[in-house]
Structures are given as structure tokens and as C-alpha cells.
């Protein structure tokens, strides 16, 4: 559905998008993730033919965005970042305008407007003016205008920013539903959102892609380390430390401040280990063998949030994001 090859967009000396390469297959729901200024919006503006690339190629449905922008725009539905809508219009009038401008015939318009307004839950405000709408309904109207012509590709720039938690859940459900029949590219800063909605995550940083994969794959790939918190009673801290350090796979054992001495609640410590081993059974066995009581044991895996932070900390940025895996590996 989308092919992007060494795409660049420069604003003066700012390299907003700097050598982007990716493809999106039909039917995928892709999340663009990245810190402020990573180039997400700029990428979307090029895909929707609002801004021309400085160099490189972008194709939507096999059609080049520079050579045939009208055809690309026909296939795309777009929700821009701050949901710009005509405040002087009524909700229905606005949808009617978009449907007309998109070339829907008189017979198609009514049902199309009804359907998209219905899917986006706009019924309560259909006869209101746009300037009276709450943020949530504005967002819904923005979505409704983007899907009124049943586009093959939906491009949504931060579709849930500024919404309350209930609205976020509803809009996400809607996007997931739309994603069943359309290709969707959305950008967001909210990490759980990507996990909730997307089949695939592209993490952008400084105009390039630093990681690409499904949320699960990213977890797997970046499970550099895991941490275990355990609490054991019936043993002195130094003895526990020694025994744990002898277990194979344990890299480090550390105690929290003031936890050196044993108290009634047992000794707590934190164990660091590589991501691909599971120490939980071994620790349990160790305690049983020695007659200690294992009061608590919890494993923490690297979250998507930590992956994001690792990849997009300013100084560690790869300047040229060649093959994505390699670039991602470098920063770790």
C-alpha cells in the first residue's frame, strides 16, 4: 500500500525527514512512534501530498505522490495533527462539503455521510455547529470526514491527543475496527496505544527509522535484560547474595538501601539477568534446598517505553538509519 524509498524532506537546514525507507502492506495498522520533532507529521504530510519531498520516492497504492497527487489524494483519508475544521460550518454541512469535494454523487452522499457519522458516533451533534463541539467530537468529526469516501488508506496524525480516557478507549476501538478493512498509519506519543491498536510499530528518531516490528517482536528483540525482585526470609543478606551469585545466569545482585540487615519482612534484593533465561524456578529451588522462605518474587521485562527511551535519547541517535535492525542495535 505504501512504499517509501530514501525519502528526504528538508526545511532550510532542518532535516525533518532524513532518508526514510519503509513499506506498508495492505491491511496493516502501523503506528509511527517518536519524540517531538522526529518527523512523523512531515512524513504524513508527504504521503498525503501536502508537502513535496525534497528527494526520494513515496508511493501510495503504487502511485507516486509527486507524479499523480490527485489520484493519491482520492485513495487517502487524512486526519491532520490539530484537527483543523471550518468553525463556521455545521457538522452535516461540513461532511456534505467533503463528500462533494471528493466527487461523491448526490445519491451516494446521503448514505455515505450517515454511515461515517454513525461509525464515529456523531449522532448527538449532527445538527450542531462545529465551533460548539467538544474536543472529543471534533476528533470524531475529523475521523468521519477522513472516512466518508471509504479510502483504502487512512492517515491519522495523533488521533487521540487531548481526549479523556473514555474517549481514548472509544477512538482506539474505532481505529481498530477501521483497521480491519483499511490500511491505517497513525502517529502517537502514547506507548500503550501502539500496543493496543497497531500490528506494527515504526519508531522514528531524527527523521529516520530506528526500529521496526510488531510490538511483540520489539519486546523480544530489545529484551536486553530482565530484572527480578525477590524477598526471602530466614537467611542473612550476605549468605543470600553469595548463593544467588553462584546461580548460573545471574549477572548482578543488589540490595536496596538499608536492606542489608535481615528484619521481620525478610531480605529484599534485585537480580539482573539476561533477557532470554528464566531464573524463577532456580531461585525457588535454591530457597527450598536451603530451607529459606521465598516471600516474594517478581520479574520485570523491558517495556516498550524503555525501548523507546533507549532508542530516542538524543545523543545516541544514528544519523543515517541504514538497515533498521543494525541501526537499532547500534544504539543499545
Amino acid at each position: 500500500m505504501i512504499q517509501v524509498e530514501s525519502l528526504h524532506k528538508h526545511f532550510g537546514t532542518t532535516r525533518a525527514v532524513d532518508g526514510l525507507d519503509f513499506q506498508v502492506a495492505t491491511g496493516q495498522v502501523v503506528g509511527l512512534l517518536g519524540p517531538n520533532g522526529a518527523g512523523k507529521t512531515t512524513t504524513m504530510k508527504m504521503l498525503t501530498c501536502y508537502l513535496p519531498p525534497t528527494s526520494g520516492v513515496a508511493r501510495v497504492g503504487g502511485i507516486d505522490v509527486v507524479e499523480n497527487p490527485l489520484e493519491v489524494r482520492r485513495q487517502v483519508g487524512y486526519l491532520p495533527e490539530n484537527v483543523p475544521l471550518y468553525d463556521d460550518m455545521g457538522v452535516i454541512d461540513y461532511l456534505d462539503f467533503v463528500a462533494r469535494a471528493r466527487g461523491l454523487s448526490a445519491a451516494e452522499r446521503g448514505p455515505a455521510i450517515e454511515k461515517s457519522a454513525g461509525r464515529c458516533g456523531l449522532e448527538p451533534v449532527l445538527h450542531r455547529n462545529i465551533n460548539e463541539l467538544s474536543k472529543g467530537f471534533r476528533q470524531r468529526l475529523g475521523l468521519a470526514q477522513a472516512i466518508v469516501h471509504e479510502p483504502k488508506l487512512l492517515i491519522l496524525d495523533e488521533p487521540t491527543t487531548g481526549l479523556d480516557p473514555n474517549q481514548i478507549v472509544e477512538i482506539r476501538a474505532l481505529i481498530r475496527e477501521l483497521g480491519q478493512e483499511k490500511t491505517v498509519v497513525l502517529s502517537t506519543h502514547i506507548l500503550p496505544e501502539v500496543e493496543a491498536v497497531c500490528d506494527r510499530v515504526l519508531i522514528m528518531h531524527q527523521g529516520g527509522i530506528v526500529a521496526d516490528g510488531s510490538p511483540a517482536e520489539l519486546h523480544h528483540r530489545f529484551q536486553g535484560a530482565q530484572e527480578l525482585d525477590i524477598t526471602v526470609s530466614g537467611v542473612a543478606a550476605h549468605a543470600l547474595k553469595k548463593a544467588l551469585s553462584d546461580l548460573s545466569g545471574v549477572e548482578q545482585v543488589s540490595f536496596a538501601e538499608g536492606q542489608q540487615a535481615q528484619d521481620d519482612d525478610g531480605v529484599s534484593c534485585q537480580i539482573t539477568a539476561p533477557g532470554d533465561v528464566d531464573l524463577r524456578a532456580d531461585i525457588f529451588g535454591l530457597c527450598v534446598d536451603n530451607g529459606w522462605v521465598l516471600l516474594e518474587q517478581r520479574r520485570r521485562v523491558v517495556s516498550l517505553e524503555q525501548i523507546f527511551r533507549q532508542l530516542t535519547r538524543g545523543e545516541a541517535a544514528p544519523t543515517v538509519p541504514e538497515p533498521t535492525e543494525a541501526a537499532a542495535g547500534e544504539t543499545l
Binding site: K45, T48, C49, Y50, L70, E71, R73, R74, V76, Y78, P80, N82, P84, L85, Y86, D87, V98, A101, R102, G103, Q145
Partner: peptide, 14 residues
Amino acid sequence: KNGTMELLVTLPLR
């Protein structure tokens, strides 16, 4: 000013 230009010119209009 309102940014609606972005939506207007991403409609399939010349």
C-alpha cells in the same frame, strides 16, 4: 491561519 488549508488541499481538488 486555522490550518484548514491542509485538509482543503489534501482533498482531490486541483
